[in-house]
């Protein structure tokens, strides 16, 4: 999906605007001052470990809970109002379905509530890939089918913003693939999509923008390309007695240096230059070059500090 950001930024109202949002549950601060603006048409991944505050943030966007501090608006309105108008809808993680309705009846009920015509039901079923199992009881559907049903329900009001909270938890690989295919087809029509996930591959494959959340705060926010760049760095490890961090940081191509005893760890994008320097200008030996992957970037950004 391509984005011409400047043109859209100019259209005014943000799809989502969080301003200094804080949410506490007793002594626990689940969301600790999140400020975030999302433009119409963006596909944004909220990435973070379990308990980072993703679901709490999503609940506030949907008006299911209220922030203790700060302000949440969705298309310039209070979340509850935006939900009632069908501007925003969501695919929640679990629950929210009645076993003794059929797939088609569940979608039809949603259509009735949103005042949508009968044709919208067939359309939603088709787009969620449920046409063949419309007559099946929800209780007899697999986890993946139930998730696509939640998706069909979320499509019915034809929302401007679709929120997915850990949408593929508990799905097998095939189910996950089918689900994302449906979402991707849909997002291509220009809908704003926010999805919370702890699967890195999903954020990488489907988001234009990735917002890393840890302990209720945003620790990184960038385009998918920036995330990849973040993960593209490599590390040169070498044995070099007597090295200092200042000296090592001075080497061309080194972004960050660590010295642990006789061992140095030099991080950077151009590790060949770093290695060449170490081997020709210093007595360094036992060189090793390892690449940092998304996993490492994710861990570095989202893991709790061991010292805290």
């Amino acid at each position: 999906m391509t984005l011409t950001t400047t043109a859209q930024a100019a259209t005014g109202t943000a799809a989502v605007d969080l301003d200094g949002v804080v949410k506490r549950f007793g002594a626990v601060t689940a969301v600790d001052g999140i400020t975030l603006s999302i433009r119409p048409g963006e596909v944004v991944a909220l990435l973070g470990p379990n308990g980072a505050g993703k679901t709490t943030t999503v609940d506030m966007l949907l008006g299911l809970s209220r922030p203790d501090q700060g302000r949440v608006t969705v298309y310039g309105r209070a979340p509850q109002e935006a939900v009632a108008l069908g501007l925003v809808s969501a695919v929640m993680q679990t629950g929210g379905l009645l076993k003794d309705y059929t797939v088609e009846e569940t979608v039809r009920l949603t259509a009735v509530l949103f005042g949508r015509p009968r044709t919208a039901v067939d359309e939603a079923l088709r787009r969620a890939g449920l046409t063949d199992i419309g007559k099946r009881l929800v209780g007899k559907c697999s986890g993946g089918q139930q998730q696509r049903l939640r998706f069909a329900m979320a499509l019915l009001p034809d929302p401007e913003l679709l929120i997915l909270d850990e949408p593929t938890t508990g799905m097998d690989v095939a189910g996950r693939h089918e689900f994302w295919t449906a979402i991707r087809d849909d997002a291509a029509r220009g809908r704003t999509v926010i999805f919370a996930t702890h699967y890195l591959e999903e954020a990488d494959a489907y988001a234009d923008r990735v917002v890393f959340v840890r302990r209720g705060r945003i620790v990184a926010d960038g385009t998918a390309a920036e995330v990849k760049a973040l993960a593209a760095g490599r590390t040169v490890r070498a044995t070099l007695p007597g090295a200092t961090e200042t000296e090592m940081t001075g080497i061309a191509g080194v972004d960050r240096a660590e010295v642990r005893g006789d061992t140095v760890y030099l991080h950077g994008n151009d590790t060949d230059t770093i290695a060449r320097h170490l081997l020709t200008r210093t007595p360094a030996k036992d060189l090793e070059i390892t690449s940092r992957n998304l996993e490492d970037a994710f861990l570095a950004l989202t893991a709790d500090e061991e010292t805290s």
Binding site: L64, M92, G95, L97, L98
Partner: peptide
Amino acid sequence: AAGWSRQLRLTPL
């Protein structure tokens, strides 16, 4: 118990 009430809160009902 099924979370349906919560789901309904995501509708204009």
